[in-house]
Amino acid sequence: MPEATKDIASSRRVKRGAHWIEWMVGGLCTLLVAALILWIAYHAVINSDGVPELDVKVTHQQANAGGSYTVSILVSNKGTRTAAAVPVTGTLKAGDKVIETQEITFDYVPAQSTATGTLLFKADPAAYQLDIQASGYVDP
């Protein structure tokens, strides 16, 4: 019994003579981790002091059955920092007169990424001038 235990214990040791598959897997994983470190380090050097750059686009407009109007928007952040709690305000204007204002808040718009959402208007946005903008952000 002590001998058997000893055998198992020694088989659990990392021995010098390992199968070539172990070295191949190990080598590939080392390359993967090294690539990851280099990628992050590269970004650390080029843009550790970036800011969010927010841009809002209308992707789709449609009238709903209930009489409301849907305006789908895409918020993109071209900057290298994430913006949190981004309020996006849509205003319908006829000349200087504000007809309707709707606002939604995006929890996060990650760096160099996009987020989508929808504003719901009671008036038809096609009949007025539609003004959409991100009015600020919080640093996460």
Binding site: V14, A18, E22, W23, G26, C29, T30, V33
Partner: peptide
């Protein structure tokens, strides 16, 4: 052990 176990484990 680092190359054969730890790094594959991390991957």
């Amino acid at each position: 052990a680092l190359i054969r176990f730890t790094l594959p484990g991390y991957a």
